[in-house]
Design a binder for these strands. Structure first.
Lengths: 207, 207
DNA sequence: TCTATTAGGAACCAATTGGTCAATAAATGA
DNA sequence: TCATTTATTGACCAATTGGTTCCTAATAGA
């Protein structure tokens, strides 16, 4: 559980002295994210990371730091990919009601369409490491904050006549419902229940 | 990750031949539940379980099976304690609206009153082990099922004029919101956000 | 070409992991 | 008292854990 490894070198396009990387760092980071997302921090042994990335232990530790840094990097990657994308979608073009519906449908589509039961990495990290590691906690909280802000914006757009307080309430309910849906999906709860929850959550703001 | 240990002997009040237990099995099970609840399956090393229970490894393995059995037992214990209690409260006496409010307030009270950030064991297990272990998954799903049924009963009581479908939808939304609140609480999201989510969730069914 | 710098890979590490077992202790019933 | 049964304990186990180090390979710039 130590965490003293220094950040090591990252991003250098290939110029400069020294032997060039034989792997694409982003691609490797992507695979690490997938693994941690699926099995959690302790569930991913170093040997699993090696298998998933194709790198050797030495290269892994030189490019990234220790295991904890890999996890945090994976989580930050999820934040700046999945979370930011969702937030942008929520404030993007189109009917706000439709955007909210799309946001709450994502957890269901993932499981019905792709059979993807990984849930939400942010939510998993919360149950997994957030209570134990403050850095994880900070990232998770920031992610929830982003989603909350974007949801509030979309709700305000959909129902301009609502008070700020009511908008905020609805937005918070939508994150909570989203998180709950992700958690339930991971446990394999039948899609019809998820659909019911989604429809009730959207009631009054997207019809 | 093996799981072949036989169930071993349980419950024998102390009568019959043989040396009597020096510990109270229920009390030990309670401590194991607390530990797994807080740190998850992989987060609890056998040495931690030993420290938490005061038992030696050998006694632990004789009384319970391997680590996985201990975890499942802890999770079942949570189900038959926390989940069943919540379900009974929901269908119990008092105004149904108040009961629903109490159900959704529990996640908030835990963190504001007791500083309890363990969240919900069921939800944690979902993010932690449910995607990997079918037994865990079954318990989690059953737990969600119980809560869903109880919530539907309470909602139906609070709003008898609603259609069965609408009642079911609201009930499912309430479990999702509950799960989400637990997850967010574990990440340390500020209580005011949790309160906002709760109030929005209760809107229309408890006022 | 030579040097500096970096990457790759395997050997190596101590510590810990979950799990077993045999010896001993304490009870019951005969 | 003695055989039987069960519990406790600590020594022991192989395997795996995350992590380091050292040697070689490959590049850029001088």
């Amino acid at each position: 559980m130590r965490d003293d490894e220094k950040p090591r070198d990252s991003e250098r396009a290939g110029q400069g002295p020294g032997r060039p990387r034989e792997f694409d760092e982003e691609e490797v980071a992507e695979r690490m994210m997938s693994l941690f997302w699926e099995v959690g921090y302790e569930g991913a042994a170093l040997s699993d990371i090696i298998a998933a990335t194709g790198l050797q232990k030495g290269s892994l530790y030189k490019a990234f730091g220790g295991k904890r840094r890999m996890y945090l990097r994976a989580l930050r990657r999820y934040e700046s990919q999945a979370v930011d994308a969702a937030a942008e979608m929520l404030v993007g073009p189109g009917e706000p009601g439709r955007r909210l519906a799309a946001f709450l449908s994502a957890p269901i589509d993932a499981v019905t369409a792709g059979g993807d039961r990984r849930g939400c990495f942010l939510c998993n990290a919360s149950a997994d490491q957030a209570a134990l590691d403050p850095e994880t906690q900070a990232i998770v909280r920031r992610g929830f904050g982003k989603l909350g802000a974007a949801l509030a914006a979309a709700v305000g757009e959909a129902r301009p006549q609502w008070s700020a307080e009511r908008i905020e309430q609805k937005a918070q309910l939508l994150i909570a419902a989203y998180s709950g849906l992700r958690v339930m999906a991971r446990a394999g709860v039948a899609p019809r229940f998820l659909v019911a929850a989604r429809d009730a959550a959207l009631c009054g703001v997207a019809d």
